[in-house]
Write a protein that binds this DNA or RNA. Structure first.
Lengths: 342, 342
DNA sequence: TTTTCTTACGCAACCGATTGCGTAAAATAT
DNA sequence: ATATTTTACGCAATCGGTTGCGTAAGAAAA
């Protein structure tokens, strides 16, 4: 009985085998090579054979095995995307933009999240390489300060494009916005609203975007002769929790600020929620400006003003540049594209 | 000179070859089989050999070729995700949930968007099959009414889990929420706020979620003896644009409604924006309740009330069920899990 | 009619890892 | 000392397409 049972299992595990080009070849009495070529409209196969092969392939429900094809041809028709986390409006729009272009060109996308951890970014990058992506689009993790895990791609001439959070020195295509200017304007906006004491939620300062935003913020303060108060500048990962604690911290100061310019929206939203919970009127008592998410802003205006970030557009450009790099292997890929905000 | 030039190109294209187990084997004077086994801690390889192999592998910068491995072992360690579009808070949270579980178990995720088109869903499903995903998590496109493109997976015993937008009859695991009840409560909420004329933005009625939401809405109206006015029930794809035009349509009626219950948030937000543009006070003159996005709601309360949708949780459960199915091939996979809302 | 091209296809190696089976050598049992 | 088992590894086929090279048959040229 035991044997019988194991036989049953064996039977159940036995997945209906997929149709391969060998099956088609056998049925049509031609070689697998001919089938392979016919399916790709290779010139050396006659029109009739091609048509006939395609027809039987369809009738047999043939679907190519991408793995086999990719292994042999060393092209996976896949673009890897390495981001911090997907459930951020900016990121999902970025991905959407990438996929729009990629799909049109017959590419699929492979996504993985670093959750802002440097080690996870490294292992994700390696996983991308292992699955032989044809190119990689990256927005760096908050933690990352070392970039040698990307050398791998450069060595192998695998197109590499950085978006938004880009490495400072690496020679590669980069798509960014003018963070300094955007931050400057955002801060200026608050100042013109009459705010006198403007706090700033900043991210890791080794990350270009956060550094530039802070600099823009400071430049605006200086321009309007407001003092830069280090106690009003808080740094964190700008997560939901951090937004709360940072706001709390601000309101424990003897002089709490009347405005916050946050380097991202997640923290900005937390600040607003904190204020609401404490009965602080937004924006009368506390004005908040965020960064990244045009969607949110359009809804809850005027409570939260934010910088429109052309995420979708950035994704499209990144994908396009990546595919261009594939075409021209000899293309020197070290162009920085700056997009406008607002 | 021409030859020379083409030689240069050839040289440039010549990507530094990757290290394979053969390279390691050669260097260590063992067989590739031994290297392969050592790297996976196969019991039949001695501890010393295993350690030595791993060491040289590391020193040579070896990274496994996932394609080759997947091809041979017929397992890709990849979970496919088929959704309508990624840049919706609900969807990106869902994905996040899936990846959390998947990653922990050593799986990667492969995403593709149907953009609510049935034909794109079919081709995406086939692409997923072609890349031999180990399982598929699906939230149906708005258009889809035919499900035979999923039979492929069932035939091959590839785990299949549907989330949120699920097929009505197919035998498969499904993760849903109680849409009827949630819609009922949402509508009831509006009624209790004193709204007398409540409109509804519905989606395709062949899609379970939209049908159930509409039914919940109607049930609430009936319960509170409000008449169901067909002119106040509008159907569309619930996109941003549609939200506008539907709202516009409502306000062209002789008797415009004082509330809208929208089957998703995208349309709800458009309604609010429309109202704001036209100087209609929200929620005094027009109350709006959306569906899906707890994040938004928490921010702009009380303007927009919405049903909390446990997207992240749903993602985790979907991934877990999928992996379970892989373990137990003989598991009858036809369980519908209903999650609570709010 | 003979020679030279084309056309249309097949052979077989290959991509890189996995795995069933076989087998020396060492370890243990008899 | 001989027989048996265990340990540790190698051989070679395999997964399913792809592709360089070779060639028979028919077409065109001489």
């Amino acid at each position: 009985m035991k044997l019988a049972r194991s036989e049953i299992y064996k039977y159940m595990k036995q997945q209906a085998k997929s149709v391969t080009i060998y099956d088609i070849a056998r049925k049509m009495k031609v070689s697998p090579a001919t089938v392979s070529r016919a399916l790709k409209d290779h010139y050396s196969i006659s029109k009739e054979t091609t048509r006939a092969v395609k027809k039987t392939a369809r009738s047999m429900g043939y679907l190519p095995n991408t793995l086999a094809s990719s292994l042999r041809s060393n092209k996976s028709h896949t673009i890897g995307i390495l981001i911090s986390r997907i459930n951020r409006p900016f990121m999902s729009s970025l991905i959407s933009g990438i996929e729009e272009v990629a799909n049109r060109e017959g590419y699929n996308i492979f996504i993985s999240q670093s959750f802002d951890s440097a080690s996870k970014e490294v292992s994700n990058a390696e996983a991308m390489f292992s699955s032989r992506v044809d190119g990689l689009i990256v927005s760096l993790a908050m933690e990352t300060i070392d970039f040698k895990h990307f050398e791998l791609f450069k060595d192998k001439h695998i197109p590499l494009v950085f978006v938004d959070r880009v490495p400072p020195e690496m020679e590669a295509n980069k798509i960014v916005i003018d963070n300094f200017n955007a931050a400057y304007k955002a801060t200026e906006h608050l100042i013109k609203q009459g705010c006198k004491s403007i706090a700033h939620f900043g991210g890791a300062q080794h990350r270009n975007v956060y550094k530039q935003r802070k600099e823009g913020y400071e430049a605006a303060l200086q321009k309007y002769q407001l003092s830069i108060d280090e106690k009003l500048i808080l740094y964190s990962n700008l997560g939901e929790e951090e937004g709360f604690t940072m706001t709390e911290q601000l309101f424990q100061l003897p002089q709490s600020p009347d405005a916050i310019f946050s380097a991202n929206d997640t923290a900005a939203v937390s600040a607003i929620r904190f204020a609401r919970d404490k009965g602080i009127k937004v924006p009368q008592e506390l004005a908040v400006v965020g960064f990244n998410d045009d969607y949110l802003a359009s809804i809850i205006s005027p409570s939260l003003t934010t910088i429109a970030h052309p995420a979708f557009e950035m994704g499209k450009i990144a994908a396009r540049q990546l595919l261009e790099q594939k075409e021209n292997v000899d293309l020197v890929a070290s162009k920085t594209t700056v997009l406008k905000t607002e």
